[in-house]
């Protein structure tokens, strides 16, 4: 390094710093603006959903006036929904299935991911690829054989069947994500065991 370069190194950053600062501010506000535009675009359908949920059936079937706003807002739809005896059952079912699916998928994929990524054994790489490839068979095609299996297990028309099906569909992808995480977890963790 020559002295000249060193002097330049001291002088230039001062000027550059100011412009960089301005540039950063612009970039920041530009990012906010662009994100704002995307958020508005992304939220149009949910907004419309909320609006529609506040309309009465008569207002919807009337097909008149500005569809983007509610002219006679009503909470009747929500009241009806919560008063529906079945709905509570559906809601509980959903909550239960979700809980089971998440916990089962987590346990299976964390275990497998750790095994595949950190304690690699012969062929673990091929197996990991194979796990991913299960997605190549469209779900829609799995339902007939799945029905057979569920039938053989005596779980037809049983909510519990879903607790078996949903994790199956979720686990391969979870495993892949978890493999990344466990590969990066501190190696010292291993040594303690």
């Amino acid at each position: 390094m020559s002295g000249a370069a060193a002097t330049a190194g001291v002088l230039v950053p001062a000027r550059r710093h100011a412009s960089l600062h301005r540039q950063r501010a612009w970039a920041l506000w530009g990012s906010y603006a662009a994100l704002g535009v995307f958020v508005i675009m992304f939220l149009v359908p949910p907004f419309y959903m909320v609006m529609t949920s506040l309309k009465s059936p008569a207002e919807i079937s009337g097909q008149a006036g500005n569809p983007w706003f509610v002219h006679h807002p009503t909470l009747q739809n929500f009241i009806d929904l919560f008063m529906m005896r079945d709905f509570r059952g559906f809601f509980l079912n959903s909550a239960m299935i979700t809980t089971v699916t998440v916990s089962v998928s987590m346990v299976i994929s964390v275990l497998a991911a750790f095994g595949l990524a950190r304690m690699g054994f012969k062929g673990s790489q091929t197996l990991a690829t194979g796990v991913f490839l299960t997605y190549l068979i469209p779900n829609s095609l799995l339902f007939i054989p799945l029905f057979q299996i569920i039938g053989a297990l005596g779980l037809i028309n049983n909510v519990r069947a879903l607790a078996l099906i949903y994790p199956t569909l979720a686990v391969p992808f979870c495993t892949w994500i978890m493999m990344g995480i466990s590969a990066r977890s501190p190696a010292s963790w291993m040594k303690r065991h």
Binding site: V107, I108, F121, V131, I137, P172
Partner: peptide
Amino acid sequence: RSTVALLMCSPLFLLIAGLVVYPAIYAIYL
């Protein structure tokens, strides 16, 4: 360690074998 690893992966493989691989082969046959 390999054995442990294999054991850890076994639930995944069981699930995939029973509920994906078999149905997939069946679907191809279909």
